[in-house]
Design a binder for these strands. Structure first.
Lengths: 356, 356
DNA sequence: CTGTTAGCGCATTCAC
DNA sequence: GTGAATGCGCTAACAG
């Protein structure tokens, strides 16, 4: 058990004061080269592990208070973005001993104008840091440029935007998601049958970047498998259960070879519900994320599996990462951008239920 | 954001001192009913959230030092129990600011006598707490009774023993493990083919309890599926690659319908390696845990999937749970006995590689 | 039984 | 550019 040195001990060993060691360890500047050299030499043979607890305690003294602005899509209770929101709230609660004022600005994930408006209001807002749900690329980039100018740090949840400089981002590797979706639905369906991948039908909206990557990886899997099983694409309305049902029934009628259905978005339960309502059985269905609707269908047995991006954790980590940066001025190196995805069947659903 | 009260603030509000509030909040006794009543009344309208950081800092002052005894099976590097050991070490390191002396006592997981010897030596050992790998039921129970008498707390990793009183235990739900194994291997193999479940062949050892439960759940799955796919059982030597190869080749020759192989223990990679060595292809294989050997085979593509019990996390949590109990005198309510299992394919293997 | 208080390790302030 | 001093909230020891 190697004895952990404290700042004070390092100070003694190197013949400087603890204040100086602190300045060196945290790159706060205003140190002479000699002092730095002396401390570096001690650090070569001894290890310093910064103590989260005492550090947090000491920070409290400053009574710093942060204004966090969080802008993510609005969402029904128990749906994807609502789970992210809940994760963010958990983070705020967990770090409740730091004084944080949070301000949520929601926008419509299917309406770029609504996002633009939200982001424009944020651009001039007085705040310490921002958490952004990355839905619309151009709007996000435009806001980030302004935040960069103002020196306001930001983190992304559920995406990454090229050309921006976030403190951190938390998302699932969408290629992995798409491949797993393909692999699992392939496994569930008999050889020779067809597999359908379903996309949301929506007027005037382009597919989200995440869905596009998933879809590509999904296709790649089937291409790599050769022509053994063919892939067809369908669209379904996510606005109205009756329209969904009509879309899906029509599709399945004109594609009789299909046995497996994969949804690249988190509203797969709507497909299950549509089939149940129409009294159709015998299809295997896979989707994304342990949302309220999906969990119900898994329990009912009308949905076979989910790829879970763990949205709550993404939100939680976003808060953690941002606070770390606000407190220490540097990103938390231990945090990983790509979060693991869980594969969820009925058997192991229970582990994730307490998040919805 | 509801303002969190500190102990001092509660003390002021209820007209007692902070020491008294601390005694009440942590059930340390020696308080008058009146004081308790006054504080309870304040707590009805205000919320107190105990501050992990300051608490941890304050504890350091006491310079309490704990002697932990950890007794788990010995294991090759990168194998199952070695990953648990590594998780325990990570825990000890993470809490390195608390002074902990750890003492490992390894035993042979296939030799109950070795376990008995190890546990008997522990029974009289001077220590603050114990972590036990639950391999042999009778030996463990016998030790726990003695520890109970001496008031020494203990936690289990990888199991649970009826009739004992551990502070916590960390394991995967073995029924879930067995069902998932069955479901996944079923999905990978064509209908009409057979599936083999492989058990370790070992002289004079009964199957471990975990394996037995997995096997039962595995069988149950196929029984519930009807007779569509039949299940056969095979045994393989885990001591010597050549014997393994001979066992498996002999088995597959006499069971030509088999297309899928499931291992109920974490040495599934030996099956993959045996098939590779024999130049046999075309089988789907599933096993347990992201061990070194299994991870390699997943990457090579000779093993299809793993059910990962996350052994490192189990070990880590064991340390956390024990320290929590040692410091606060009560079990950490937030810790769950059943840990989630991960389903691992080649696509998402990367997330777990840094643990081996 | 109760109140008071030292000090855990660190971040910050402020004389020097 | 530097170091001494302060206090974050809590635990435990101790004096009453």
């Amino acid at each position: 058990m190697p004895q952990q040195l404290t700042i004070k001990q390092i100070a003694e060993l190197s013949g400087v004061s603890s204040g100086t060691v602190d300045r060196i360890l945290h790159n706060r500047g205003r140190v002479s080269p000699e002092a730095e050299e002396a401390v570096r030499r001690v650090l070569e043979t001894h290890s310093y592990k910064y103590n989260l607890h005492t550090s947090a305690v000491a920070f409290k003294k400053t009574k710093k208070s942060f204004d966090l602005v969080i802008s993510i899509p609005s969402s029904q209770k128990g749906e994807y973005w609502d789970l992210i929101r809940a994760g963010i709230e958990r983070g705020l609660l967990e770090y409740g001993d730091i004084s944080i004022h949070s301000h949520f600005v929601f926008f419509d994930q299917f309406n770029s104008l609504s996002c633009r408006e939200a982001f424009e209001s944020i651009a001039t807002m007085e705040c310490s840091a921002v958490i952004l749900g990355t839905t619309f690329v151009d709007e996000t980039r435009s806001l980030c440029l302004k935040l960069d100018e103002r020196g306001i740090p930001y983190v992304f949840v559920d995406g990454r935007i090229p050309g921006t400089r976030p403190v951190a981002c938390f998302l699932a590797d969408q290629k992995v998601c798409g491949s797993l979706l393909a692999r699992l639905i392939d496994g569930l369906t008999p050889s020779g049958s067809h597999v359908a991948v379903f996309l949301p039908r929506r007027v005037g909206t382009q597919m989200s970047n995440n869905s596009a990557i998933r879809l590509e990886a999904f296709r790649d899997y089937f291409i790599a498998q050769g022509k053994e099983k063919s892939l067809v694409e369908g669209y379904f309305s996510v606005e109205d259960p009756e329209k969904t049902e009509k879309d899906i029934c029509a599709f399945l009628e004109s594609n009789p070879g299909v046995r497996g259905i994969a949804s690249v978005i988190s509203t797969g339960y709507m497909i299950s519900d549509a089939l149940s309502a129409a009294g159709i059985r015998g299809f295997h269905i896979g989707g994304f994320d342990v949302t309220e609707g999906n969990a119900r269908c898994i329990q009912e047995g009308t949905l076979d599996f989910l790829i879970n991006q763990h949205p709550g954790r993404q939100g939680f980590y976003a808060v953690e990462a941002l606070l770390h940066f606000l407190l220490y001025g540097v990103p938390d190196k231990s945090m990983k951008e790509f979060q693991p995805v869980d594969i969820v069947f009925r058997e192991n659903l229970a582990y994730w239920l307490d998040e919805i």
